[in-house]
């Protein structure tokens, strides 16, 4: 029972850390949009501006972080 307790805790902690990281990226995006909207129009790469690159990044980051989270959770579960 004690072991199970720790595993659940570990996954919950991992989830919270990843949630914190994503929230920070999302909050930065909202802050730039709110305070410096013109900065979002700055061309960054391949003719694409910051707004498009950051927006796509947020979507792709959600998918990639989800996959990383799953892999790490599987490892934690395998240790069982």
């Amino acid at each position: 029972m004690g072991k199970k307790k720790n595993k659940l805790d570990e996954k919950a902690k991992l989830g919270l850390v990843l949630f914190g990281i994503y929230s920070l990226i999302y909050a930065t995006f909202v802050i730039i949009n709110t305070l410096w909207p013109k900065l979002m129009g700055k061309i960054i790469f391949a003719g694409l501006n910051l707004a498009v690159i950051y927006g796509f990044f947020l979507i792709i980051a959600a998918i990639v972080m989800g996959l990383i989270y799953n892999q790490m959770c599987l490892k934690i579960e395998e240790k069982k």
Binding site: Y26, G55, A62
Partner: peptide, 25 residues
């Protein structure tokens, strides 16, 4: 234009809360 896409970004971002915090518990 882009202001409509902000809804896409916000709606998708919400799933991060679902995955990392809510799903398993």
């Amino acid at each position: 234009g882009y202001d409509g896409f902000l809804y896409s970004i916000g709606y998708l971002g919400g799933w991060i809360v679902a995955l990392f915090v809510v799903a398993e518990p």
